[in-house]
Computed example of a mutant assay.
Amino acid sequence: MKKIVLSLVALATILTASETEEVSSSESSFLDRIHFKGDMRLRYESIERDDKSNTYRTRYRLRLFTDIDLADNLLLETAVISGKDNPTSGNVTFRDDEPWSDYFFDVLELKILDIAYKFDNSTIKAGKQAYMMYRPIKSQLVWDNDVLLEGVNYNYTDNTNMVTLGVNQLHRRENEATSTGDINLFLAQYVLSTKLESSTLNIGAGFYYYDGIKGNSTPYAAGALGNTLVSGFYANDYHILEGFGELKFKDVLGKPFEIAASVAYNTAADDNNFGYDIGVQLGKAKNIGEWQVKYSYTDIEADAVFAAHSDSDNFGGGSAAKGHAIRTKYVFSKHVDIAGTFFFNTLYASKSATGVEADYERVQLDAIIKF
């Protein structure tokens, strides 16, 4: 608790300084081209599972975004985010035996650094960047909320069509000594949006081709997260075919309502290669006093998706599990959201530490401070 209070004090100091600083007219003109935003999420989390000891911890995630208008259609995007070397999470766990400096300076990383060129309905990004793929009701069947890409990616969006294409490479820092080569990612996704009488129907498909995974070591410190390994190396490649449908209503019981279903199939694996996700959401937490609640059921076989890029929270991250998730959010004030997430899962035997199916329950209580 002491470290959380200190975090809030440090954040308040930064906000106060940014609001009171005086600048000249010429400096103001330059600063108009620079856009800052960020957030800090404070989290209490409990994990109770049959196959391992339980975990209870407090964590934080800090994100600082800076965008600079280089020209009318040219943008430099940067972000410093906590959680060094983790591709799908910025979480840092508070520990009693670590110095204060370890919680910020040693865990921060420049995770986004790209040039974005926007013209007509198109955007091209080159560098380290946030993904541009569409996810129905923010499904994390294939892509975690925080996945970052490194390469060149293109997105086209109009009233009825969305096309995303990209060529990327996984940037590994862990296990480089045992790596047998680079891992590349080629991606393509198409979404068709159709307006109905009282709703909008989105239908989409994607293909995500990872090149160089089979026979390679895991690229990140978290390990395989459910994917099949043989002697510490991946047993399969991952050429993932995705399909989904989403129906969005403006008014059900006075609230926005969405329902969606997604499937993923790894064409490069002979078995344990299918996953699906079904979700519904009521409400939209955008303005003060608004709330939303989402329920989803997910079942991912071991090699249906590349587990290091799938949901990092559900089932402890990755694949080889199934279960329920309930996610809630409430906008408490202009700068504060509160949220709660509850997972009730079953780990498949291949993922369980005991070699038999195990129950996995996880609770996350969050306060998100935006600035």
Rank of each mutant, 00 (worst) to 15 (best):
K250H: 05
R95E: 11
T298E: 05
F94L: 03
T354S: 15
P219E: 13
A71G: 01
D313F: 02
P87V: 14
T354I: 15
N121A: 12
S122T: 05
N175K: 07
T298L: 05
F344W: 14
F315D: 03
L201W: 14
S198Y: 11
A224D: 13
M132N: 00
F94Y: 13
S82T: 15
D120M: 02
V293F: 06
E290Y: 01
Q129R: 00
I259P: 06
N86E: 15
Y276P: 02
N86I: 12
L229H: 05
R49I: 05
R49L: 04
F104R: 06
N86P: 08
D69P: 01
A79I: 09
R173W: 09
A188D: 02
V252R: 03
A10L: 11
L187D: 04
S29C: 00
N91S: 13
F344P: 06
W291K: 09
N273I: 06
Y156T: 15
K329D: 04
L149E: 03
R327S: 12
L196N: 13
A205F: 08
V147M: 10
W100Q: 11
V336P: 04
Y210Q: 13
S26C: 04
E45C: 09
N161R: 00
A320E: 04
Y44M: 02
G323T: 05
N272E: 11
D158W: 14
Y134L: 08
S262A: 06
R95P: 01
K84S: 05
P256A: 12
L365I: 13
A304R: 05
F344E: 14
A308Q: 07
L282S: 11
L187I: 03
K118G: 02
N86F: 11
A205S: 12
K2H: 10
T160N: 13
F104E: 07
N184T: 05
V280T: 12
N54S: 09
L6A: 14
D337E: 08
A269E: 08
E21L: 13
F105P: 00
S310C: 07
M1E: 10
E174L: 02
V356L: 12
L62C: 07
K125I: 02
L110R: 10
I81Y: 09
I34W: 08
L75T: 15
E176H: 02
K84G: 01
F274T: 04
L282Q: 12
R173Q: 12
E45A: 14
M40K: 02
I326K: 02
D211N: 15
A260P: 08
A264E: 10
G317S: 11
E290R: 01
F244Q: 08
A302M: 00
F65M: 11
T160E: 09
S217L: 03
L31A: 09
V263I: 10
D359C: 04
T200D: 01
F233M: 00
S319I: 14
N287C: 02
V191H: 02
A224K: 11
V336Y: 03
T228S: 08
A17R: 15
T267P: 04
F233S: 00
A71Q: 03
E176V: 06
D271P: 07
D270Q: 14
V152E: 01
F94C: 03
L141A: 00
V80E: 00
F30Y: 15
S29G: 00
S179M: 11
